[in-house]
């Protein structure tokens, strides 16, 4: 699904040159649920931005869903974001002036789908996250957990091949966080590839694989192997 080979990202100012990612290599297979952890400033967000085609990288090669996206122009990158990637942001990033239905519709409009197709997808996505009855509500009228579920519905409506979640529970209490996590697991069980950046070790353990980033490089842990090792030791 995703292959990054020797990706580097350098931020330059007149005085400073910062290597956010250096010789970053990662492969994520289709259907995986990967958690990405690491301390602040390790390069998690930079990785997520590059994985989601939100930002360029300085060197290396990035293949997404079999397509080398390294040299694509802005329009092509926008198209791939719209058709193949779903985003879930820490702060939900709902548009406050639009109701829930219109928020979910935003990426579908950019895809140029017919009104009928959009309506069906919106209804389906909202029913998956359990908010079909709140379609006319504004984001401000919903709790944080509900808002994040709307954001998930918005991501799901596009039927993405890859779901990128940036600290999806970072702004939620533990109960809400658990509900969101269960929702993500449910989505993953239907075959969607998920990459989730998180600080929460417990959430990280619920993924099938954990990628730890340190100083812009990967330090990977296979959770299943680790669990099996732990069981054998015991």
């Amino acid at each position: 699904m995703l292959a990054m080979n020797n990706i580097s990202k350098v931020f330059r100012t007149d005085l400073v040159e910062t290597h956010a990612l250096r010789d970053f290599n990662l492969q994520v297979n289709e259907g995986e649920f990967v958690s990405v952890t690491g301390p602040s400033g390790s390069g998690k967000t930079t990785f997520l931005n590059i994985a989601g085609l939100l930002d360029d990288f300085s060197h290396g090669q990035y293949v997404l869903d079999g397509e080398d996206v390294s040299g694509l122009n802005d329009n092509e990158r926008s198209r791939i974001r719209n058709e193949k990637i779903g985003f879930i942001f820490q702060s939900f990033n709902l548009i406050p002036d639009l109701n829930i239905r219109d928020n979910v519709e935003v990426p579908l409009r950019y895809r140029g789908l017919s009104a009928n197709d959009r309506r069906q997808r919106i209804e389906k996505a909202l029913s998956i996250v359990g908010l079909a009855s709140r379609a006319k509500h504004l984001p401000a009228q919903l709790s944080g957990g509900q808002q994040q579920r709307v954001a998930i519905a918005r991501a799901l409506a596009g039927e993405p091949r890859l779901l990128l979640a940036d600290e999806p529970t970072g702004n939620l209490d533990s109960m809400m966080a658990r509900q969101i996590m269960e929702l993500l697991e449910s989505i993953h069980s239907n075959g969607t590839t998920i990459i989730m950046v998180t600080h929460d070790a417990e959430l990280s353990r619920r993924a099938t694989r954990n990628v730890h980033i340190m100083d812009g490089q990967v330090s990977e842990i296979n959770l299943h192997e680790q669990m099996q090792a732990n069981v054998a030791q015991a």
Partner: peptide, 16 residues
């Protein structure tokens, strides 16, 4: 600005 960035992340082209 953030809303525009979100729209762009969700697939909006510059001309849109």
């Amino acid at each position: 600005t953030r809303q525009i960035g979100t729209r762009r992340a969700l697939g909006a082209r510059r001309y849109q």
